[in-house]
């Protein structure tokens, strides 16, 4: 670098500092750490097994193949049954849709009642609900199994749906309550003065304003319920296993030779739904974290 001219004018000359280089180096290395597993997963799923045994885990396939994906979808075995992971996919979809709708509906109404109406004991209930959000699920599982067994609900898709609604309630309530606390109470008072009832205010005034938080809640619930493993294992029963449980059974089943390419294809297939939600929702996903976390 030459000395600066005696009379500087205009834009300060840009210099590449060591700090700047360091910033990018750190970011690129971090990005590599996060991307390598995805890359390995994708490459493995597109290679034949012979190549996996010989080659290096990072390399591109020499012989590209989508057979592992087909096999993972419709042919992979869990124990003795070989119908692929598609069965789990269908189960997960059937669990997902009613669970998301129900948990958001109940969460929204509960949050609304807690924010705008004074019901005796409501705060105590809300406190219990919040505490419940922190308690490890293992504490509730056995009694719930007994309860569901007694009602004949155990080992059904409906059973898993109910469990998701139960354990989604704290977060959903908190989400909606926090959102509704941000709405000026005067708006609610105006609606009361205009003669609105509990339900008419909710449906005509509050719900139309709730679009942002409903989107956030949907993102949280879709990814959360899709990614669930514990409730699927404990409540779904052999016939109704959701995708995550089936994936684990396929990959970690002790029978036969491990087919890593099929395993990785199945893993990617399972990850596809939350990844799609993540990439399509963009900043909303972060907002979901913020809404559920920063305020919560």
């Amino acid at each position: 670098m030459s000395l600066p001219p005696p009379d500087p004018e205009g834009r300060r000359p840009k210099t590449v500092t060591a700090g700047r280089v360091g910033v990018y180096a750190f970011l690129v290395i971090s990005a590599a750490f996060f991307l390598i597993p995805l890359w390995v997963m994708l490459m493995t799923s597109l290679k034949p097994m012979e190549e996996i045994r010989l080659g290096n885990i990072f390399s591109l396939p020499k012989l590209w193949t989508i057979d592992p994906w087909i096999s993972a979808w419709s042919g992979a075995c869990t124990g003795l049954e070989c119908h692929g992971i598609s069965v789990g996919f269908m189960n997960s979809v059937q669990i997902l849709i009613p669970s998301v709708i129900l948990s958001i509906a109940i969460g929204a109404v509960t949050g609304y009642a807690l924010s705008f109406w004074r019901v005796k004991g409501a705060n105590v209930m809300f406190g219990c609900l919040l505490l419940g959000a922190f308690i490890p699920y293992q504490v509730f599982i056995y009694p719930l199994v007994r309860l569901f067994a007694a009602t004949g609900l155990y080992n059904s898709l409906l059973c898993v749906v109910v469990v998701h609604v139960i354990f989604g309630l704290p977060l959903m309530t908190l989400l909606f309550r926090n959102f509704y606390q941000g709405i000026p109470i005067d708006l609610f008072k105006a609606a009361r003065v205009d003669g609105g009832s509990f339900w008419s205010i909710f449906l005509n005034v509050i719900l139309p304003m709730s679009a942002p938080i409903i989107i956030v809640a949907t993102i949280l619930q879709v990814t959360g319920i899709w990614n669930d493993f514990l409730f699927g294992v404990a409540f779904a029963g052999r016939e109704n296993l959701p995708m995550t449980v089936q994936l684990n059974n396929i990959v970690n089943s002790m029978q036969g030779e491990r087919r890593y390419n099929v395993d990785m294809a199945a893993t990617l297939l399972t990850a596809l739904v939350p990844l799609a939600v993540y990439f399509l929702s963009g900043r909303w996903f972060v907002r979901g974290i913020a809404a559920g976390a920063v305020k919560g």
Binding site: P8, E9, G10, R11, R12
Partner: peptide, 17 residues
Amino acid sequence: LDVEEGKILIGGRNVTW
């Protein structure tokens, strides 16, 4: 803020950069 053109003097000293 960096200036795009011109210069700024404070106390007679050119401080643009």
